[in-house]
Amino acid sequence: MPFPPRLRDKIQEIADDHETRLSALIPVLREVQNEFGWLSNESMEEVAEALDIPPSSVQNVASFYTMFFTEPVGTHVMWLCRTLSCALRGAEGLEHHLCRRLGVKTGETTADGKITLLEAECLASCGTAPAMLVDDTLYENLTETEVDRIVDKIKRSG
């Protein structure tokens, strides 16, 4: 699916704002992912063409950074921190709880396509552990009740 003209203009704008075309790649991929939810092979090829860089450079970067999705994900992405400080304050229990509640294993998407549950490495919220990033919102000092409330809110939303 070719990029809509608005997105192509935006990519050009980002490219012009960077010192090299390659250095615009990460911001451009973020923009494309925001548009489609993930980065398909077709999208990556179109980015390579728009920035006039090798397709392999795009693939390399898209596969290296964990926040780029090279496969479809749910409408919302939950990044539950698993690293030490969160683990010491109950992250593992929360992960089991979330898996049960959502009916998925970590790394999977709910049947209704709304939520993908992923493990995050340290979110720099160790003092307010356990923590979870849901899309652009960080939730801290999590409990099972709080996690249920977040899931309910997403389920209710469109």
């Binding site: 690293t83 490495e121 720099a124 160790c126 307010t128």
Partner: peptide, 10 residues
């Protein structure tokens, strides 16, 4: 800032 245990810069 990504070092596990560090949250000062945030």
């Amino acid at each position: 800032e990504s070092e596990p245990g560090s949250f000062k810069d945030r």
